[in-house]
C-alpha cells in the first residue's frame, strides 16, 4: 500500500480546529457536532456520500457558510465575523471549486494577479511575475493571455489552483476539484495537487478519487449525514474500515 510521501506532522501545530460545529439549512441538520483538527503541512481528505455535508464543511472554514453552533479556529484565533478581518482570513485560505469559476471576462494572467493586487496590495509588475511563475508550476504558462473559455477544463482548474496559490494561503481547500472534468484531465489536476502536498502545503480535499486519498492523504475523514463517522490514516481506513457506513460506501465506490 502506498504511503503518503511527506511525513505526517505531529500534533501541537494545529492550523484549523473545528470544535462541535453545527450547521442547519432550515430544518436540515447538515453538520452535527463536527470535530476536526488540521495540522500545518497536513493533507486531510474528506470523503462520503452525496449530501453528507462535505462541501458545507469546506465552505465553513473560510466562512462562505456561517455556522450555528460550536467554534472554528484558524491559526489560533476564532474566525472573524466580517469586514477587513474576514477578508484577510479568506485571503489566507485558498479555495478551489468543482466548477473552476474563473473570472470569464479576464485573461488567465489577470485571474491570477487580481487578488494579489486588490487584496494583497502588490504592484502589477511583481504580481505578474508571481502569476507567471505559478502558471508555469501548474503547467499552463503558455495560456497566460487567453480567456478561460479558450482553455480545457483541466487547464482551467489548474489556473484556478494558481489563482488561489497566488495569495500565499496558509491552507488550501479543494471541493471536488476533479468531479467536473473529463477522465483524461483528472490526472493532470491531481498531479498538481500531489506536488503541492509534497511541498508541504496544508490541504483539505473533498474528493472521490481514492487513489489520491491513498497516496497523498495523512488523514482520511469519512462523513455521513453531517457527522464525521470515521477518521484514520489512509492505510487503516482503506484496509480496515470500522463502521458499516464506511464499508458500504467503499464497496460501492471501489467496485466500479
Amino acid at each position: 500500500m502506498p504511503v503518503p510521501e511527506g511525513p505526517a506532522p505531529e500534533g501541537g501545530d494545529a492550523l484549523v480546529v473545528l470544535s462541535r460545529v453545527d450547521k442547519h439549512f432550515g430544518s436540515l441538520h447538515v453538520l452535527r457536532a463536527v470535530d476536526l483538527t488540521v495540522h500545518r503541512g497536513e493533507v486531510v481528505v474528506v470523503i462520503g456520500p452525496s449530501g453528507s455535508g462535505k462541501s458545507t464543511l469546506c465552505r465553513a472554514i473560510n466562512r462562505l457558510e456561517t455556522i450555528d453552533g460550536g467554534e472554528i479556529r484558524f491559526d489560533g484565533r476564532p474566525l472573524p465575523a466580517e469586514g477587513r478581518e474576514l477578508a484577510r482570513l479568506r485571503a489566507d485560505v485558498g479555495m478551489v471549486f468543482q466548477s473552476f469559476d474563473l473570472f470569464a471576462h479576464k485573461t488567465v494572467l489577470d485571474n491570477v494577479t487580481l487578488g494579489q493586487i486588490k487584496v494583497r496590495g502588490k504592484d502589477r509588475k511583481s504580481a505578474g511575475a508571481r502569476a507567471r511563475e505559478l502558471l508555469g508550476r501548474v503547467g499552463v504558462a503558455a495560456q497566460a493571455d487567453k480567456y478561460p473559455a479558450q482553455l480545457s477544463g483541466g487547464q482551467q482548474q489548474r489556473v484556478a489552483i494558481a489563482r488561489a496559490l497566488a495569495m500565499d494561503p496558509k491552507v488550501m481547500l479543494f471541493d471536488e476539484p476533479t468531479s467536473a472534468l473529463d477522465p483524461e484531465m483528472i490526472n493532470e489536476v491531481l498531479e498538481v495537487m500531489r506536488h503541492l502536498a509534497r511541498d508541504g502545503m496544508t490541504m483539505v480535499v473533498v474528493t472521490h478519487e481514492m487513489g489520491f486519498a491513498r497516496s497523498a492523504a495523512h488523514q482520511v475523514v469519512f462523513m455521513a449525514d453531517g457527522r464525521i463517522v470515521e477518521q484514520a490514516a489512509p492505510e487503516d481506513f482503506f484496509g480496515n474500515p470500522r463502521s458499516d457506513r464506511a464499508r458500504d460506501f467503499l464497496s460501492k465506490i471501489l467496485h466500479h
Binding site: A87, M95, F100, L102, V119, M167
Partner: peptide, 23 residues
C-alpha cells in the same frame, strides 16, 4: 453572472464593493 464567480471573488478576500466593481 455565475454565482460561482462571486464566491470565488469572495474566497480571494475581495470585499463586496470590489466584487461588484471588478467581477
Amino acid at each position: 453572472v455565475p454565482l460561482g464567480q462571486v464566491e470565488a471573488a469572495r474566497a480571494l478576500g475581495l470585499s463586496f464593493p470590489q466584487t461588484l466593481r471588478l467581477i
